[in-house]
Design a protein around this nucleic acid. Sequence first.
DNA 1: GCACACACTTAACCTGCGTTAGATGCGAAT
DNA 2: ATTCGCATCTAACGCAGGTTAAGTGTGTGC
Lengths: 250, 250
Amino acid sequence: MPIRLLNKLQQFSPLTENDRLFLRAAAERRRLMLRAGEEVIAEGERPTAVFLFLEGWAYRYKTLDDGRRQILAFLLPGDLGDPDEPPEREMDHSIATLTPVTLAELAREDLERIAGGHPTLAEALSWETLARGAIQREWTLNVGRRTALERIAHLLCELFARLAAVGLTQGSACALPLSQAELADATGLSAVHVNRVLQQLRSDGLVRLHDRRMELPDLTALQQVAKFNPAYLHLHYRRARPDAEDLPVA
Amino acid sequence: MPIRLLNKLQQFSPLTENDRLFLRAAAERRRLMLRAGEEVIAEGERPTAVFLFLEGWAYRYKTLDDGRRQILAFLLPGDLGDPDEPPEREMDHSIATLTPVTLAELAREDLERIAGGHPTLAEALSWETLARGAIQREWTLNVGRRTALERIAHLLCELFARLAAVGLTQGSACALPLSQAELADATGLSAVHVNRVLQQLRSDGLVRLHDRRMELPDLTALQQVAKFNPAYLHLHYRRARPDAEDLPVA
DNA sequence: GCACACACTTAACCTGCGTTAGATGCGAAT
DNA sequence: ATTCGCATCTAACGCAGGTTAAGTGTGTGC
């Protein structure tokens, strides 16, 4: 099974074969296989290991007492759970699966050994952590200030871009194992309104849905509807541009 | 000028006098004083140092092309900017001041020296980073799933709790240097509706506003309205409870 | 003292989205 | 084959919150 996290990390810094082998080995020691609809970890529990998602979709969420639920993030193959959470901290939210999921539990000692002995790997992992924060901020903007149409379009653009980054798109199509109720909880809308918005996106020829998959025939147009700017995903590493004054005079 | 970050950190782990002196010294090398309404750093720029806010209020925000703005977080005395941002990454959002602000620019070498030689300080700082992420998640929930009344009440509860953690409350009162338009941008509402909600909170005796300050005469009642659970702020350190099986038989 | 910019307030009106309630279709379990 | 559960879809209705547009302070600069 491919460690799709490596796909992303290698865009940030070139990893050595040694780095790759170390991460692969760390991800093999403890595997967990879950069915769809299971809890990975619940609010209030203490995480003992760090989750690395290998296959399948999961989501992070919080609920209010009366049942209102907000999905905070989707966890796709190649994503890390909460790498920096110390085990003495209680989770302030829950994680559950949407499809059958395979994940690796990374031991904290292995992560510490990465921090110690694999600097480029460590750097790439911290880049991942920062990208996660940036995505959360974009979601706050999405839910706070975009219209229903923009929100749904934006979410679909994000999912497509993130799946593309780990090689899980097929042409203009990819998996989308979400019910309309789940789309609603991710965008702060009602399920009925999500249905209305999807109808419109479909009739505008921007989205096609069948068989738990989506196709985006005109990604550029969809991104314009969503006001989607992929910069926040920080998927592509750019070293600081050498500024003019740093360059030797040619 | 007090380093209010220390107030928070000491709740997590007991710092040594040496730790405190080191942080204080690091925060004295480069000071910046800004007036109200100035940009601290803009989207697209590269942060060269790490900001430690000493005095005054600032906020993180993103805007859409047509001017819609979402405030993502408020930065209060004792808060850190983005401690883990590497300098080669471009900011995906901006930070600006609400009041006159004093901040320290921490040199990255100093932070590295903390990571190397001050383990409890480093641990406390990483705790801070995690709390920042938790707050961002709570904001996504706030904007996505709470009603207007709950959102405003929740924001006020959070601000009060965070100010209390750094010793900046006076009884049931604290500063609130926010216009209603800014409250609106933080909660995903319109300024007019914020006004309506504030009227209600006032007439219910839950909030009093005058002179850029707020008073919360009945904090418990306000927290109930907000469905506020301070756990997400992770303001109080709790070591893992020794479970029954870990305890020696008495 | 006056002009100006802003913040707050209020009112009238409007609409995007929520709510409720069914109808329809389909896959999984038995 | 039948039932059950769940997802999608539709329609009717309602309301929370947005929009527009004034009017009223109030502090600041000149």
